[in-house]
C-alpha cells in the first residue's frame, strides 16, 4: 500500500514538473518574441546565426534530399509499372516530397543536427556562466544570444525545406530518366498539371515553417533551461532531438489532417 502511495506521489510530482516546464517554456517563448526587435538594430548577429544554424545543416539536407528523391523514384516505379502507370512516377515522387517527406525529413534532420548543436551551445554558455556574466554586464542574453538563434531557425527551416524538395525531385528526375527510361518531357508535364501550387507546395512550406518554429523553440529552451552540469547538458541535448522529432511527427499528422481534408 505504501508502495502505491509512493508511486502515485512520484507520478504526481513528475506531472507537476512537466506542467511547470511547459509553463516556463511558454514564458520563455514570449520573452523570446519580445526580444526579436533587437535584431533590427543588430542584423550581424542574425547573419552569423543563419550561417551557424542554416548553412551548416545544408550539407546533410542536400545529401539526404538527393537520396530520398532517388529511392522514392525507384520505389514508385516498382509499384506503378505493374499498372502500366509508370509515367505517373513524377507525380508520385513530387506529391510525396512536397506534401510530406520534404517538410518532415527537413524537420527531423534539423532537430538532430542544428537543434542539438543549439542546445549544446546555449547549455554550455549557461554552465560556464557566460549568460550570467552577460546579465551582470547589463546585456540581455535573451536579446544577444537567444533571439538571433531563434529567428535564424525559423528562417532557415523553410529555406532548407525548399532546397530539400528541389534536390529530391531532381534526384527522382535523374533516376527516372537515366535509369528507368522515362522521357524527360513526360516527367515534367505530368507534374505540372497535377501538382497544385497552393494545395501542395504552399501547404508543404507552411508545414516547414511550423516545424522550424517548434524545433528551434525546443532546442533553444532546452539549452537555456538545462541543468548546468555536463550530465544535465547531455540530457538536454537528447531531449531536444527526441522531443523535437516527436513534435515534428505529431504536428505533421495534425497539419495533414487539417490541410488535405479527405
Amino acid at each position: 500500500m505504501n508502495g502505491l502511495a509512493n508511486f502515485l506521489q512520484a507520478v504526481g510530482h513528475r506531472l507537476l514538473n512537466r506542467f511547470s516546464r511547459i509553463g516556463r517554456g511558454s514564458l520563455f517563448l514570449w520573452q523570446c518574441l519580445l526580444s526579436l526587435g533587437y535584431l533590427l538594430r543588430r542584423p550581424r548577429l542574425l547573419v552569423a546565426q543563419l550561417y551557424s544554424v542554416g548553412v551548416q545543416t545544408l550539407l546533410i539536407i542536400l545529401v539526404a534530399g538527393l537520396f530520398v528523391g532517388m529511392v522514392l523514384a525507384l520505389q514508385a516505379y516498382i509499384v506503378l509499372v505493374d499498372f502500366g502507370a509508370e509515367e505517373s512516377i513524377s507525380l508520385m515522387v513530387s506529391l510525396s516530397i512536397l506534401r510530406e517527406l520534404g517538410p518532415v525529413f527537413t524537420g527531423l534532420l534539423f532537430a538532430g543536427r542544428a537543434g542539438s548543436a543549439l542546445t549544446a551551445e546555449i547549455g554550455l554558455m549557461k554552465s560556464t556562466e557566460q549568460l550570467s556574466g552577460m546579465e551582470m554586464m547589463a546585456v540581455n542574453p535573451m536579446k544577444y544570444i537567444i533571439a538571433p538563434r531563434f529567428l535564424a531557425g525559423i528562417l532557415s527551416v523553410p529555406m532548407l525545406t525548399a532546397i530539400f524538395m528541389a534536390i529530391a525531385i531532381l534526384g527522382g528526375f535523374f533516376v527516372a530518366t537515366e535509369m528507368l527510361g522515362i522521357y524527360e518531357g513526360v516527367f515534367w508535364s505530368q507534374m505540372q498539371t497535377k501538382v497544385d501550387f497552393y494545395d501542395d507546395l504552399i501547404n508543404g512550406m507552411i508545414k516547414s515553417v511550423v516545424f522550424g518554429f517548434v524545433v528551434v523553440w525546443i532546442a533553444v529552451f532546452e539549452g537555456y533551461d538545462c541543468v548546468p552540469t555536463s550530465e544535465g547538458l547531455g540530457q538536454a541535448t537528447t531531449r531536444t532531438v527526441v522531443h523535437g522529432s516527436l513534435a515534428v511527427l505529431g504536428l505533421d499528422f495534425i497539419l495533414t489532417a487539417l490541410m488535405f481534408n479527405v
Partner: peptide
C-alpha cells in the same frame, strides 16, 4: 556593478 565570476565567464 562589475562582476568577476569564479570562472571568468569570458565569451568563448
Amino acid at each position: 556593478m562589475g562582476m568577476l565570476f569564479q570562472s571568468g565567464a569570458l565569451l568563448t
